[in-house]
Every structure is written in C-alpha cells, then in structure tokens.
C-alpha cells in the first residue's frame, strides 16, 4: 500500500514538474493540476494509511484514537481541492484571454524566433 501510493505520488509530481516546464500555457495548467493532486495525496497519506478507519466518532463512550482516521489532513485536503478547482478555472480564463490578446498560447506570448 505504501509503495503503491508513494509511487503514484512520485509519478504525479514528476509529470507535473515536467509539464510545468513546457512552453504551452495549457500544459503548464495541467502540470499545476497534477502537482496539486500529488501534494494533496501526500498530505492525505500523513493521516495513517489504513482501511476502515473513519473520522466519524461514536455518539458516546471512550474513543481510542488508533482506531480512527486523523481528521486534520482530510480537512486540509478538502478545502485544498475546492480552492484548486476554482483557481484552475481562473487560470484557464486568463489563458484564454492571453491567447486572445497575443494570438499565441506560448507562455512568452509569442513563438520563439527560429
């Protein structure tokens, strides 16, 4: 489980970093998305990788923290997902506007001279 998840995070982060360095603005945005997925998964994994441990408590009685998930990473990732959705939409709009102004989707605003 740990190996699979850490490999997945590594692949996501590497693809995101590679896409961030591409010259097309759409690739940069997809790269940012992949990087944020990687970071979200990494934070999520900090709360203990077990199956069947919810963050929902019984109504009363003693609570053994080992039997339940850590709610802090889940709460952090929950808000981060919503923020990244909204900011990605904003990035896309800015990209569309920039393309309308410059006529090119190169991150420098113009194609590099040959």
């Amino acid at each position: 489980m740990e190996i699979v998840l850490s490999a997945a995070i590594g692949v996501l982060a590497a693809s995101g970093a590679w896409l961030l360095m591409r010259p097309r603005s759409f690739q940069v945005i997809v790269g940012l998305c992949l990087l944020s997925y990687a970071v979200n998964l990494f934070i999520f994994a900090m709360g203990r990788l077990t199956v069947g441990a919810p963050a929902i408590m019984p109504k009363r009685g003693f609570v053994n923290p080992d039997a339940y998930a850590d709610p802090i990473p889940q709460a952090l990732v929950l808000t981060a997902i919503v923020i990244s959705f909204a900011t990605t939409a904003l990035f896309l709009v800015v990209m569309i506007a920039a393309r309308g102004f410059t006529g090119s989707d190169h991150v420098d605003g113009q194609e590099r001279a040959p």
Binding site: A45, V63, P65, D70, P71, I72
Partner: peptide, 19 residues
C-alpha cells in the same frame, strides 16, 4: 517518519475530545 505512518497528536486529541 516513514511514509504513511501517523505523526500528529493534534488529530488524536481532536478525535478523543471532539464529540
């Protein structure tokens, strides 16, 4: 700490006292 292992006591305290 090794990957996927639990570190925070903050979460444990919230779990134990939240309800």
């Amino acid at each position: 700490p090794s990957f996927g292992h639990h570190v925070s006591t903050y979460g444990d305290v919230v779990d134990a006292m939240g309800t």
